[in-house]
Design a protein around this nucleic acid. Sequence first.
DNA 1: GCCCTGACCTGGG
DNA 2: TCCCAGGCCAGGG
Length: 109
Amino acid sequence: MKPETVSFYDKVYQVARQIPFGRVTSYGAIATFLGAAKSARMVGYAMNGSHNKDVPAHRVVNRKGLLTGKHHFDGTNLMQQLLESEGIQVIDNQIQDFDSVFWEPRKAL
DNA sequence: GCCCTGACCTGGG
DNA sequence: TCCCAGGCCAGGG
């Protein structure tokens, strides 16, 4: 496949890998950055296949800072522990001080 | 090839 | 950060 035809999924993975340590972003932010603001769902769906792709999926949450995808990780609170190990406070699936740890793909480029 | 589901977002009430 | 409805599109049965 050619660069122009790189799957939407691969682009999502590319962006996800650039999320710095101790920061998080949202599905919508990635979707918008890729020019598909209305396809935020696809981002989440794409993450479904990111398990064996070295993608820090735990750093991607919904726009409220809620860990909506935690059920896709092993166990019940693995995602939360991963985030907390990076210095991010998580209480009841909700990222605390979300605005401070939020990372925008645009700013990185 | 149809029907359903889903790690979401936005706008209006 | 409520509630409800609509839109987006890929994958599996």
